[in-house]
Design a protein around this nucleic acid. Structure first.
Lengths: 209, 209
DNA sequence: AACGTTATTGACTGCTTGGTCTAGAACCGT
DNA sequence: ACGGTTCTAGACCAAGCAGTCAATAACGTT
C-alpha cells in the first residue's frame, strides 16, 4: 500500500539510547541524534514525534532492560545466595568497564528527575520493582536456609539497589573495576548468611581483575 | 583606585551551583545563570571567563564541601562508630528531602565524566579522599574495640561511598526518606561490630520520619 | 502500468545559544 | 574635583537549536 520504512524502529531506539547515555538529554542535539541513528530529520518526526518523545522511548527501553537484568536473579540453576553474588559481580564488571558511561536509566534519573515528574516516577517505580526482585531472591534464600530467616528481605532489597546505583556513579568517574568488585563483595556482608549459605558460596571469590 | 564589584564572588558561585545542580551543565543557559546570580553578562565574563569556567568553579566548590562533610566524621565527641551511623543518617535525610536535586558533585560526575576528563578525575579523586576519611574513622573504631580488627577498613570506606552515592540517585527520583534511612541502617550491618560497639550504638535507631 | 499512500530529502524558519563590543557609570587615591 | 581604572548595561553577532514544509521517491495493490 505504501512505501516501507528503511529503518528498524527498535534499532533506532537502541542507537538513540547510546547517544543519550553519552551526552544526556540537553547535551544531545537533534543533528547528533540523526547522525547516530542514520535517519533523516523528517523520518524521526514521523516515526517518534520529536526529540523528547524519542528520548522517552529510549529511556523506557533502557529501564525495562535494567529491570529485566535484576529480574533474572530469580531464576537459574545456582542457589539464590549465589545468584545474588553473581549479580553484584556482573554489575561491578559492567560499570567498571573503561570509558563506560552510566546507563541511560541512571543518567536520566539524575539529569531530569528534579524537573520531569514522568522520568522521576518511572525511575522510582523501577527501583521499587528491582527491590521486589532482590527481596524475593533473598526470601528464597531464607527458605533454603542460606540466609537467617530474621533478616528483612525488603530492606536488603532496597540496600542492594542503592549499592548498585552507587557503583554506577563511581564507575562513571573511572574508579577501577577492582574497587567496584570490592564494594560488591563488601556489601554481601550486610546479609546474615548462615553456615549453609556460606558453604554454598564457597570461599572462592574468584579472579575478576 | 577603581570601581568595586557589586557582587560577592563566592555568593555568585553558590547561586550558580544551585542553578547547575537543578538543570545540569548543558541544560542551564547563560540567561538562566544571569538571572539566578543577578549579575550582568559582561560581569560574569570579566569575573569568571565564561559558562564552562563558572561551572568548574561551582563544581569544585561543591566537591570540596562534599569532602568536608565526610571529613567531619573524623572529629567529634561521639564514639567513631556512632559518628559513622550519624553520617549515614545525615545523608539519608539530606537526599531524602522532597524536591531535592542531587548535589552538583553527583550531577556533574554523571553528566560529564564520560566526556570531560577533568570532571572525571576530580570526582574520582574526591571519592578516594572520602574513602580515606571513612577508612580512618573505621580504623579508629577498631582501635577503640568497636569494630572487629580483622575488618578491611579501606573496603568498607569504598563501600560507604557507594552506598551514599546510591542514596543520592535514589533520593533524586523521589524515593521516600524512610527508605533511604532504611538503606543506611542496613548498610551498617556490613560492618563487623563488636559487642562493645553495639553497646555504644545503643538499640535506638531514633525516629527520623 | 497506473494509483494511492507513505517515507525520504533537504531547504527553510524563527528562536535560543554562548560570547563580544561599545558606551557609560561608579569608585578610589590624589 | 578630577583622572585612571574597573565594573555594568544593553545592544549586537554568528552559530546552533528544534521543528516545519513542500517536493520527490519508493512501495503494494489493483
Amino acid at each position: 500500500m505504501a512505501r516501507p520504512r528503511s529503518f528498524d524502529e527498535a534499532d533506532v531506539v537502541a542507537r538513540a539510547r547510546e547517544a543519550f547515555a553519552e551526552t544526556g538529554f540537553a547535551g544531545t542535539s537533534l543533528d547528533t541524534l540523526l547522525e547516530a541513528t542514520g535517519l533523516a530529520r523528517q523520518s524521526l518526526y514521523n516515526a517518534f514525534g520529536g526529540k523528547k518523545e524519542l528520548f522517552i522511548r529510549a529511556f523506557l527501553s533502557d529501564t525495562a532492560e535494567a529491570i529485566e537484568a535484576v529480574e533474572s536473579i530469580r531464576h537459574g540453576s545456582d542457589s539464590p545466595i549465589t545468584r545474588i553474588r553473581a549479580q553484584l559481580v556482573k554489575m561491578a564488571v559492567a560499570h567498571g568497564a573503561a570509558q563506560a558511561p552510566p546507563s541511560l536509566f541512571t543518567k536520566a534519573a539524575v539529569e531530569l528527575s528534579a524537573r520531569d515528574p514522568e522520568v522521576a516516577s518511572t525511575a522510582a517505580a523501577a527501583f521499587e520493582t528491582m527491590r521486589t526482585h532482590y527481596a524475593a531472591c533473598i526470601a528464597e534464600a531464607q527458605e533454603a536456609g542460606e540466609i537467617d530467616g530474621a533478616a528483612d528481605a525488603d530492606s536488603l532489597g532496597a540496600f542492594f539497589c542503592a549499592v548498585i546505583e552507587g557503583m554506577g556513579t563511581l564507575g562513571a568517574t573511572g574508579i577501577p573495576r577492582a574497587t567496584l568488585l570490592d564494594i560488591g563483595f563488601t556489601s554481601l556482608a550486610a546479609i546474615p548468611i548462615t553456615e549453609l549459605g556460606r558453604a554454598r558460596l564457597g570461599t572462592n571469590d574468584g579472579d575478576w581483575s
